[in-house]
Amino acid sequence: MVHQVFIYVAHRDGQAADSALELLSAARILSPDGPVTAIVTGWGEVLDRVCQEMASRCPEVWKLAHQDLAYPNAEAVRKCLVEVLPSEAVLLLAHDTLGMDLGPGLSVKLNSSFVSDVVAMTAPRDGALTLVREEYGGQVSTHVSCDISGGAVLSIRSGAFPALEDGAPGEVQDRSSEIGDLACGRRFLEIVEAEAGDVDITKEEILVSAGRGIEDEDNIEIAEELAKALGGVVSCSRPIVDAKWLEKARQVGTSGKTVKPKIYLALGISGSFQHLGGLKGNPFIVAVNKNSKAPIFQVADVGVVDDLLEFVPLLTERINSQR
């Protein structure tokens, strides 16, 4: 049976998120010839702009305008989608902080299957879809089969599918009249921007980045010494900030800073997608990790499989002695 395939478009400041075109190319796997419908929820002029933008790439765009959707409160968005989606729909959304908020509960209310953080998939057969996900921070992958006979909600990892560049244009349909009451038990109040730190790692060319493998607060010094020897600054992964060993402004990743250094030294960092999501501009990556199978070695240019607590001080000493 043919399922109607939808993508849910996240947007900000009147622009569709980069994920939208990636969702469109993932949707093509599910529906090679069939139409794909983009759903855009929001309010006001910014919503219209995003709908127009999507209509230039997508055969059908559903506009869902409501004041309660002006900010994407997942609880309200869910209510709206449950009302407008046909039964057995397959909906793709981004595995980002909105998708994580929205997807699981939506699948329950639609009574459909749910698979999150999909990195690859093959065309459905006999009402089942085979998808690829990762576990343990990317150390291993799994093939997953998902029964989509009753519909599905699938959240897609950023960057896993190429952006669709050649989508055919289409029309915007205003379906706002189908939206019912969106009042819900959660109300958006405001956004508080992340605090600035004493260094701006987004402007640095050489970053020496410490991960959980540094093991102890006192060992941060090891990264600092190397950074000094190289003329760079210290950044880090999330667990280092969670432990309060370094300030939040030093964190690289999707929930931290997006950096674009020329050289990135990852010390005791496993290479989770949330960490790598903050690393842009194709830097030269050096990874030091005692686990030869750590995912970071797949993206690094040069790898050292060793205990960083032994290797890095030695490296620093040899750099300094060559001056």
Partner: peptide, 19 residues
């Protein structure tokens, strides 16, 4: 409705030059 079929380690590009 969702079942794990198997575990594997994907082949990824060239990977790092391991010293």
């Amino acid at each position: 409705k969702v079942r794990k079929l198997d575990y594997f380690v994907p082949e990824m590009g060239e990977g790092a030059e391991i010293l």
